[in-house]
Nucleic acid binder design. Structure first.
Length: 615
RNA sequence: GCCGAUGUAGCUCAGCUGGUAGAGCAGCGGUUUUGUAAACCGCGGGUCGCAGGUUCGAUCCCUGUCAUCGGCUCCA
């Protein structure tokens, strides 16, 4: 614990040292905030027209090393708030001045967009700020609560990684500052280890593996954020989806199918038009009607529900469909498969009575758990609730929201106790959500599975059932996606496995390698393929005129689970000695089997959805 | 969309401050008939992302544009 605090102080101190260096190099620099983040720190600076590029990082690092070598002490001081504001004015630090003014006005129970750590609060929990604290090192003084190391020489090992734009206080209507990022550790050794780990992470990047294993591609001609799935990648998608369908079938979901466009009217009724009209791909027909590519499936599904009256006895009605939706995301947000414009949702909608909400959510959560546990992937639960301070962003009244959220909270706490993130302001505009967050190989978090409660669309589309008294009753909708999107699932899956997919997922499960090109060998291999295909095994042959060693290597690189070399020996004995991919071979010795035995084993494994081989 | 960086063969990359491009792997052809992570020889392949401009001449300099990467913002 003490060590963690030390590291925090080091990183925080490095942020100040970096600011010191920046001030030396660009005396007119105006500073924003400079907090500690995971593995390091950053500082937001405004250098006017000077734009930093990566080459400036070296210059800043050099100056930082000079500041560190001087080993200047960090000195704490305190000023009354008004005096502090005067200081900021005099020092020509408008951003600090703004923060101090906010602090004076709002006290310590400050607006949430203020970074508390960055403010020089002298006393915690006091609603009226009397004094604020400052830290000075060398010739740089900054508003800051601390703590810091005692002197600049004790700041530890660091490296500046990058510079990027960042809006002042996170608002895109504010001026953009330059954010300089660094990582820092107590020792050089730990720093090196972290850098090595980042290099390792790059090798698992789904974009790289997607290319190496030939899973998907992008084309400038087709467009940004529109992945094209190769035969191998398509196998992965189909298998994932089949798994979800299988799970959902157990819980009474029925498959439906809808067109990919719709009239704009559907989104006006759902409420999406008002909020998301700029993010729709719009289509104007030759007769001047406005259509849009569907950005979600709920309005379509509501109309399937609404085709006829429903008795309360039929409820819950559960529709599922895996289909693409299209969203015109801003170009700068697109990234590999984790953010795309054509999103494959394994979407489902439950139409039910209020009294059925809890059971339905529990069932969905069961599916989510059963799905992800097969891959050994643990997701973080987030309770995504509305922000009462931002009422305009949501439909419905406050009491509806607080009731729904209370219900969801009880469910969450019943399942994970306190192990969830409180997502204030993360709700959908129509209702609270339970989101399941995954992390990519670089630690970037994004939503995968999601369960969403919706009171808005049943109203917008006037969805009802006939209750026990023969009267119309307003129903509730639950939206859920287990994968979230197949694209995002594949990010998690590819990076988790580094492309070493379990057998049931592997695009190519068995590869036959011929020793020579004799007709008898070819024939033996072909026979094996025919038998394998009958068992539903995905099998390939490499009968190219290359050495066995080279062909083995090629199969290894493609992470094929089973490689079988066939030649005179196999023809003579009708037995094969399968080579098993290393990660699968842990508890599966390489032993000879007859061809039929071998293929049967593979076929069993291919349906069992277990990770490890039991051959 | 905003800030910064990058864009050379299918892939990974080289190309010295302007004189129209190279390597390895992959591919194709041949020799070889191969036994569990790279046989040997040869060949083809690039309007240097695209479009303008400057210049006698542009992969290299300038402008625009498209795409990728890292952040910011956004995410039904």
């Amino acid at each position: 614990m003490a060590q963690q605090q030390d590291l925090y102080a080091m990183r925080h101190s490095l942020a100040h040292i970096m600011a010191t260096a920046v001030q030396h190099l660009w005396p007119a620099a105006r500073f924003g905030v400079g907090p500690v983040v995971e593995n390091g720190f950053y500082y937001d600076v405004d250098l006017g027209n000077t734009k930093l590029s990566d080459t400036d990082l070296g210059t800043i690092e050099k100056e930082m090393k000079r500041v560190i070598a001087a080993d200047a002490p960090f000195v704490r001081s305190e000023k009354p708030i008004d005096e502090a504001i005067g200081w900021a004015k005099q020092a020509k630090q408008p951003y600090k001045e703004e923060l101090l003014n906010d602090l004076k006005r709002a006290g310590t129970t400050i607006a949430k967009d203020l970074d508390v750590d960055e403010l020089g609060l002298a006393a915690d929990g006091d609603s009226k700020v009397a004094n604020v604290s400052f830290y000075t090192d060398a010739d740089f003084t900054d508003l800051c609560r601390g703590p810091h190391v005692t002197s600049t020489g004790k700041a530890g090992a660091f490296k500046l990684l990058r510079v990027s734009g960042a809006y002042w206080r996170g608002k895109d209507t504010n001026p953009q500052m330059q954010r300089i990022y660094g990582i820092a550790f107590a020792t050089e050794k730990e720093l090196k280890e972290h850098l090595a780990m980042l290099e390792e992470a790059k090798k698992r990047d789904h974009r790289r593996i997607g290319q190496e294993l030939d899973l998907f591609t992008f084309s400038d001609l087709i467009g940004q954020g529109l992945p094209l799935w190769t035969p191998r990648g398509t196998v992965l998608r189909k298998q994932l989806d089949a798994f979800v369908q299988e799970l959902r079938d157990e819980y009474g979901y029925e498959e439906v199918a809808i067109p990919h466009i719709t009239k704009k009217d559907a989104y006006i009724a759902s409420g999406h038009w008002a909020k998301f009209k700029d993010e729709l791909f719009k289509i104007t027909t030759r007769e001047g009607h406005e259509f849009a590519m569907k950005p979600m499936n709920c309005p379509h599904h509501t109309q399937i529900y609404a085709r006829k009256p429903h008795s309360y006895r039929e409820l819950p009605v559960r529709f599922r469909e895996t289909t693409m939706v299209y969203r015109d995301e801003q170009s700068g947000e697109l990234a590999g498969l984790s953010r795309v414009r054509s999103i494959t949702q394994d979407d489902a909608h439950v139409f039910c009575r209020s009294s059925q909400i809890e059971q339905e959510i529990q069932n969905i959560w069961d599916i989510v758990e059963r799905f992800w546990s097969v891959f050994g992937i643990e997701l973080t639960v987030r309770f995504s609730r509305h922000d009462p301070a931002n009422g305009d962003a949501y439909i419905g009244d406050e009491s509806m929201w607080s009731d729904a959220e209370a219900q969801i909270k009880t469910i969450i706490e019943g399942r994970v106790d306190t192990h969830y993130i409180d997502g204030l302001g993360e709700a959908a505009f129509y209702g609270p959500k339970i989101d399941f967050l995954g992390k990519d190989v670089f630690g970037r978090q994004f939503q995968a599975s999601t369960i969403q409660l919706d009171f808005g669309q049943p109203q917008g589309f006037d969805l009802t059932c006939i209750d026990e008294k023969g009267e119309k009753e307003r129903i509730v909708m639950i939206h859920c996606a287990i994968n979230g999107s197949l694209e995002r699932s594949l990010v998690l899956l590819i990076e988790q496995t580094a492309g070493r997919f379990p057998i049931w997922l592997a695009p190519e499960q068995v590869r036959i390698i011929t020793v020579n090109q004799e007709p008898a060998t070819e024939q033996f291999a072909q026979d094996m393929v025919v038998r394998a295909k009958k068992l539903g095994i995905r099998i390939g042959i490499d009968s190219s005129n290359e050495s066995v060693g080279k062909k083995i290597r090629a199969a290894e690189i493609m992470k094929v689970p089973y490689t079988v070399v066939v030649g005179e020996k196999e023809i003579a004995t009708s037995e094969v000695l399968p080579r098993i991919r290393k990660d699968l071979a842990v508890d599966a010795p390489h032993t000879s089997k007859t061809v039929d035995e071998f293929l049967k084993t593979v076929a069993n494994e291919a349906t069992s959805r277990v990770h490890l081989s039991s051959l």
